[in-house]
Design a protein around this nucleic acid. Structure first.
Lengths: 341, 341
DNA sequence: CTCCGCTTTGAAACCGGTTTCAAAAAGTAT
DNA sequence: ATACTTTTTGAAACCGGTTTCAAAGCGGAG
């Protein structure tokens, strides 16, 4: 039954012109109700489905969007963040009747090539780009190509760019404030300078300490790259400096940090408190379960798709919108809150 | 710079016909070398890129393939297997100059709808389908649509179907044999009946026991669904039955199993041995690091794309090929091998 | 009954390529 | 030089839709 039903054939069967069938298909006005019905009947009886390719050649719209993930292989593999995000975007695309294409690149050069290919293909109605510091390099290329795009995560040059992000500053602030509230004063952090999310979380941490009159000790700030291993290394660096508590900027790094603490014979919660960030599955699966800042990844993905869809439909990129999703502290056991009960 | 360049324009600039430009673009024969060069010069000077949409309308080929993941949300979210696979396929697609589109569905109905949409769109040159028992329902639909497709994982009805899989029987066999070699006799397993991979791993486990004359005790076989929670529950069920060793059919379930053992106060390796399956990041990150059967996910993904590309190119679906990738036992600490040194 | 304006409709152009086919050019054998 | 192949080339058809535009149909006003 892979029969060649074309709009022409439908037109003949319904005894109207191609143009009229097209009008019915696209729910355009100026078709008499009875004619519309007649055509629709033929369509449903034959099970006709218009050929998308032809449709988009003629209409210059593909309903395909691309998701460009550019991050180190380490991150994409090991951090559940990207899978969760991808999944959310995939769902959002389906909800908006868009087809999602996926591009993963590991190096800046690879990313550039990928992007060139994408743009050259001229196949996509729009793009969603995940922002790390490398992603920024794409912006001018994207703007030149005049293709609608939305960033996930704030790019370092955010002027005039549409993006969706979590409230990372607030995240760092909530985490640190919580630790201060619990009575800790020597509070370290494992931050990251891989992207603006890391910068922001660190800034939030610092502002919380400032607000409460706690001096910021550079020696209590270590950096990782969102991998478990880097969390492990960073915590090893921190342990000799004897922090009472640590804010770790991602759950995956927390897993590494936990291991370092375990090896050092330190009991999490009793000997040292830990607050994490993200609230991905590992947070609850960890031992002890992590007190962590929940980041609404699903919402972020959905909103990115919706914003993109909106830009595509309206053609309006400006004014650029910055959508910041709220975060929330989830108290579990790693912060030692329990022992104060 | 938002290109107004068409093949027509290039033809004019090079002073030849559209047809000749098309021949040059597609590296077809029957163009004099000098003419070819002249056209190529114009192309590179202008930076012309052919419009893919038009190209594919005319040639009936899109270079887009779809990846259909149908699994419970639990699995897609929490098991690194799918991210790893997706990543590998994405890479394979890029290597083969194919664009990859991603579809995730959680229920059978959703999957059906998704697939109908995909097939109706008529946009895809081929599909890669991940097989769980639900995926099987798609097969007839796919065959009717006459679209090239390759399964990842053996579908229950594999007759005439192209698929790529890991040698799961061998995986179960290696794991159980290793435990037997170490001297254990009361060997349980946490299996899964979610897909044929689970069936096969269980079969391998059973054949190893049979081969060594060890009776199979039904009470030592528990089932999970590849989630951490199900691994936890299954191990809780097994503990009272006092197995000396357990083969857990996935790393994610092993994580749950480890937790159950920890809560029961049992030391892994000393009090009870554990061999896992997959060798995903959690295996090495677990405490203790897991002895596990390595499954070549990257290779599997790549081969699936290659097989699909080949079917698309040649148009030959038959004879159906069953590609079984080898697995390998990775000995770490959870199996207690260390204590025998 | 005629005129005017609005809605409905179909023919044809168009999107930007590929492919077919016949003519032109080049090559080869006689 | 002629006849016959083979290669190279361009004009035109085609892929299957959308969109434009002018003509046809219709209702209400004069």
């Amino acid at each position: 039954m892979s029969n060649k039903l074309t709009i022409q054939r439908i037109a003949e069967l319904a005894d109207v012109s191609k143009a009229t069938v097209s009008r019915v298909l696209n729910e355009y006005p100026h078709v008499r109700p009875e004619v519309r019905e007649k055509v629709q009947k033929v369509i449903s009886e034959t099970g006709y489905q218009p050929n998308n390719i032809a449709r988009l050649l003629a209409s210059d719209r593909s309903s395909i969007i691309g998701l460009v993930i550019s991050a180190s292989a380490q991150m994409v593999f090991n951090d559940p963040y990207f899978p969760a995000l991808t999944e959310a975007i995939s769902r959002g695309a389906a909800d908006n009747n868009l087809i999602l294409s996926l591009f993963v690149s590991y190096t800046e050069k690879q990313g550039r090539d990928t992007l060139s290919g994408i743009l050259a293909a001229g196949l996509f109605d729009g793009l969603i780009i995940t922002a790390d510091h490398r992603g920024d390099a794409f912006i001018s290329q994207l703007q030149e190509a005049e293709i609608p795009f939305v960033f996930i995560g704030r790019p370092s040059e955010a002027e005039g760019i549409n993006y969706v992000d979590a409230d990372n500053v607030k995240g760092g602030y909530l985490a640190a404030s919580h630790l201060i509230d619990l009575g800790y004063r020597r509070i370290g952090t494992i931050a990251s300078d891989q992207n603006t999310a890391g910068d922001d979380r660190l800034a939030g941490y610092q502002s919380a300490l400032n607000e409460r009159g706690i001096a910021i000790e550079k020696r209590l700030i270590a950096f990782g790259d969102y991998t478990l291993e880097s969390g492990y290394a960073a915590m090893k660096e921190l342990i000799p400096r004897k922090p009472e508590a640590v804010f770790v900027a991602s759950d995956t790094m927390s897993l590494g940090a936990l291991r370092a603490l375990r090896e050092a014979g330190l009991r999490v919660s009793e000997d040292i408190a830990l607050v994490s960030h993200d609230d991905l599955p590992p947070a609850i699966q960890a031992d002890p379960p992590l007190t962590t800042v929940r980041q609404p990844i699903a919402t972020t993905g959905q909103m990115a798709v919706e914003k993109l869809a909106q830009i595509i439909m309206t053609g309006k990129t400006y004014p650029a919108q910055h959508i910041i999703n709220p975060v929330k502290l989830i108290v579990r056991e790693s912060c030692g809150a329990a022992q104060f009960n």
